[in-house]
C-alpha cells in the first residue's frame, strides 16, 4: 500500500501533478457502471419486485433452502479442507527444498487456468463408481460421484489455489531471526510454530478461506457434472437458478441470485475487515 498521507479537509482528491485523473476515473466509472453495476442493479430491481417477504418466501421454500444449505455447507467444509491442506502446501513450497518443487508450485494454479467444464468431466470420470479413484473408494463403501462428496471434491479443487496463494507470500516474509530468538529462549519447535509463526499467518489463512468459500458457493461448471443434482440432497444453488429459469420462474431465479449476491458482498466485506484488522494487529496485509 502507498503510505497513507494525512487527508486534507473536505477535498475530493488530493492535489497532484500527475495528469489524467478526470479522464481515467471517468472511464473507469463509466465502464464499471455499464458492465458491472447496471446489470447487477437490474437483478436487484427485478428481485425487489418481490419485496423482502417475497425473497424470504423463496429462500425458505424447502427445496431452495436445502440447495442453499448444500451450497453453503459443503463449500464451508471444502474451504476448511482447502485451507488446511493449502497451508501445508504453502509451507512446504516456501520453506523446504526438494526435487520438483517448482513444478508442484506451478501445478497449484491449475484449477485457476483449467476451464471448469473440463475439470467437471475429468473429475466425474475419475470419481464415478467405474472410475480410477471411484472404484477404490467404492471398495471402502464411499460413493463419491453423484453425492455431496462429489460436490465437496469439486469445491476443494476450485478453492485450493486461493488457499495456497494468499498464505504463501506471508510465509516467505516471516523473519527467521524471530524463530531463532524463540528457539534460543528455550521454546520447542512446536512451541515456536504455534506461538510465533502461525499467529501472524491467521489473517492470510482467513482471507484464503473466505475466497475459497465464495468461489465454492458460486461454482457451477465443475460441479454439475459430478454432483448428481438430486433435489434435497446434492442440488446446488446455482443449478437451482438455472432450473428456475427453465421453469420460466424469473422471480424465483432472481430471488436466489440476490441471496447469493448478498452473500458475495458479505464475504468481500469480511475479507476487507480481516485485512483491516490484520493491518492494525500485525502491521501488514
Amino acid at each position: 500500500m502507498a503510505t497513507p498521507s494525512p487527508r486534507p479537509k473536505r477535498r475530493f482528491r488530493q492535489p497532484s501533478v500527475i495528469p489524467g485523473f478526470g479522464l481515467t476515473l471517468g472511464y473507469t466509472l463509466t465502464v464499471l457502471s455499464l458492465v458491472v453495476l447496471l446489470p447487477l442493479a437490474a437483478l436487484v430491481v427485478r428481485a425487489s419486485g418481490l419485496g423482502i417477504s417475497g425473497i424470504w418466501d423463496v429462500a425458505t421454500d424447502p427445496r431452495v433452502a436445502s440447495a442453499l444449505r448444500v451450497s453453503f455447507g459443503v463449500s464451508l467444509l471444502a474451504a476448511l479442507t482447502a485451507s488446511f491442506f493449502g497451508s501445508i502446501v504453502a509451507w512446504v513450497l516456501t520453506r523446504y527444498d526438494f526435487p520438483g518443487r517448482r513444478i508442484i508450485d506451478a501445478v497449484v494454479d491449475l484449477p485457476f487456468a483449467l476451464p471448469t467444464a473440463v475439470a467437471g468431466i475429468a473429475l466425474a470420470s475419475l470419481y464415478a463408481p467405474n472410475g480410477l479413484v471411484g472404484e477404490q473408494l467404492a471398495k471402502v463403501g464411499i460413493e463419491a460421484a453423484y453425492t455431496p462428496v462429489g460436490i465437496f471434491i469439486a469445491m476443494v479443487f476450485i478453492g485450493l489455489p486461493f488457499a495456497v496463494r494468499t498464505v504463501q507470500p506471508l510465509i516467505s516474509e516471516i523473519d527467521k531471526e524471530v524463530e531463532e530468538a524463540s528457539a534460543i529462549l528455550g521454546s520447542t519447535r512446536l512451541g515456536t510454530l504455534t506461538k510465533v509463526v502461525l499467529p501472524p499467518l491467521i489473517p492470510a489463512v482467513l482471507t484464503g478461506f473466505a475466497l475459497a468459500f465464495a468461489r465454492g458457493v458460486g461454482e457451477y461448471g465443475s460441479i454439475i457434472f459430478i454432483a448428481g443434482n438430486l433435489p434435497y440432497v446434492s442440488e446446488i444453488a446455482p443449478l437451482l437458478i438455472v432450473i428456475k429459469l427453465s421453469e420460466f420462474d424469473y422471480a424465483g431465479a432472481c430471488a436466489i441470485a440476490t441471496i447469493m449476491l448478498a452473500i458475495s458482498f458479505t464475504v468481500l466485506l469480511a475479507i476487507n475487515l480481516i485485512q483491516a484488522w490484520s493491518r492494525r494487529r500485525f502491521g501488514y496485509v
Binding site: A2, L29, L32, A214, L239, S264, L268
Partner: peptide
C-alpha cells in the same frame, strides 16, 4: 494507484465484485 481520492477503497471493492459473483448469476 496514482491519485488519492475519496471512495477509493469502495471503488476497488466494486471492481473486485465480479470475482465473487457466481458465474450463473
Amino acid at each position: 494507484a496514482k491519485f488519492q481520492f475519496w471512495g477509493r477503497d469502495l471503488l476497488v471493492t466494486l471492481i473486485d465484485l465480479p470475482f465473487s459473483v457466481s458465474p450463473v448469476v
